[in-house]
């Protein structure tokens, strides 16, 4: 009887934990600038961006894409840009009792402050890292045209 009771309790624990994950009707943007596309296609046209931490309502799914809405912006985002974890950004202050991972998501840990201190050490040269990041950022249709010109037919082209 004790064994049966323990088994039932374990099932309830597992079930309740699973239910919490399965009912995620909202997700958070986990990249600096989440790309919201017109259609669920990797080379699709961009309709807007959402910043890191933005919450989106999930309306549906197609392959690796989620159909999302955030305010007046609606479209499709790739799953790699979204997380079910909540990202709390409150001007640097975070509620108490959070885990290390939640603190890391909220911007604690390795962040711009740490980079600024590391830069000052002289061990690294960020000049071309900054240039790399801010140039040659091609959108889906430009890359699609490049691919087609080269006779490439991947990615739904």
């Amino acid at each position: 009887m004790r064994l049966a009771r323990r088994a039932v309790l374990s099932a309830v624990v597992i079930g309740l934990l699973w239910a919490g994950a399965a009912t995620a009707g909202t997700m958070s943007v986990t990249v600096k600038q989440g790309r919201v596309l017109e259609a669920p296609m990797v080379f699709g046209r961009l309709v807007g961006h959402l910043p890191y931490g933005a919450r989106v309502s999930v309306l549906g799914r197609h392959g690796a894409f989620y159909q999302v809405r955030s305010g007046s912006l609606a479209g499709w985002m790739h799953r790699s840009a979204l997380t079910t974890k909540r990202i709390v950004l409150t001007g640097g202050r975070v509620r108490s009792g959070v885990s290390g991972s939640e603190l890391a998501l909220a911007g604690k840990g390795f962040n711009q402050q740490v980079e600024n201190r590391y830069r000052a050490s002289g061990r690294a040269d960020y000049t071309w890292v900054d240039k790399m990041e801010h140039s040659n950022n091609f959108d889906g249709p430009t890359l699609a045209a490049f691919a087609r010109q080269g006779g490439l037919r991947g990615g739904g082209l």
């Binding site: 986990t30 990249v31 600096k32 890191y52 885990s99 290390g100 991972s101 890391a104 998501l105 911007g107 840990g109 390795f110 962040n111 711009q112 740490v114 980079e115 590391y118 830069r119 061990r123 690294a124 040269d125 960020y126 000049t127 071309w128 890292v129 790399m132 990041e133």
Partner: peptide, 28 residues
């Protein structure tokens, strides 16, 4: 949660700052 807290997870955002620093170190 306690077990998870003992080891920090490298989030995509932290990975970004690490990556920038690695690239910047190589570019030195």
């Amino acid at each position: 949660g306690a077990a998870q807290r003992a080891t920090a997870e490298i989030t995509p955002r932290q990975e970004y700052y690490i990556g920038r620093a690695v690239a910047a170190t190589i570019l030195k």
